[in-house]
């Protein structure tokens, strides 16, 4: 099994200039937790997800001392969220990301999922051109299909 036949070839992709609500709506509609961010030349520039939105809201001091999370006032989450309404996908995305290439073995993606607790990885060519998204579910679907086919054949 290689990445190109286990990936989602046309996943939801986010433009780096997309606003916060646009990003959220696209993620909700697609059911994806994360989505690749591409520029106008279809080059992969990052990955953005619900986690990145939440990360922006949780202040650094809570990460330094998690005991303090119970001290913030009621309505803190909504207030902070409103303050970030003006941010764009490009401000939220992670740029130091793992990716796989279409010709890589699926096992590489599986190993990266396990190692970095990821649910999805972008698939790109060597020159950075975005080609798809590989997720845990897309791998399982392909595996299921392949094993069933083998059984039918035998």
């Amino acid at each position: 099994m290689i990445v190109s036949n286990s990936m989602i070839p046309e996943p939801v992709i986010i433009d780096e200039k997309a606003g916060l609500w646009d990003l959220i709506n696209q993620l909700l509609a697609s059911g994806q937790d994360t989505a690749p961010v591409v520029n106008r030349n279809n080059k992969l520039v990052g990955v953005v997800g619900i986690h990145d939105v939440f990360s922006k809201i949780v202040p650094e001091y809570i990460r330094l001392d998690e005991k303090l999370m119970s001290m913030v006032h009621e309505g803190y989450f909504e207030e902070k969220f409103r303050k970030f309404e003006g941010v764009q996908a490009g401000d939220l995305m992670k740029t130091e990301i793992d990716w796989v290439e279409p010709t890589d073995a699926v096992f590489k993606a599986v190993a990266l999922f396990v190692k970095h607790r990821r649910r999805a990885l972008p698939v790109r060519e060597k020159d950075g051109t975005f080609v798809g998204l590989i997720t845990r579910k897309s791998i399982l679907r392909r595996l299921h299909y392949k094993l069933n086919k083998v059984e039918e054949g035998s």
Binding site: P59, Y61, I62, L68, M71, V72
Partner: peptide
């Protein structure tokens, strides 16, 4: 300061 800085940031934030 490591112990007090997060509380200070919390209070200032609030």
């Amino acid at each position: 300061v490591i112990l007090l800085a997060p509380v200070t940031l919390l209070i200032a934030d609030e």
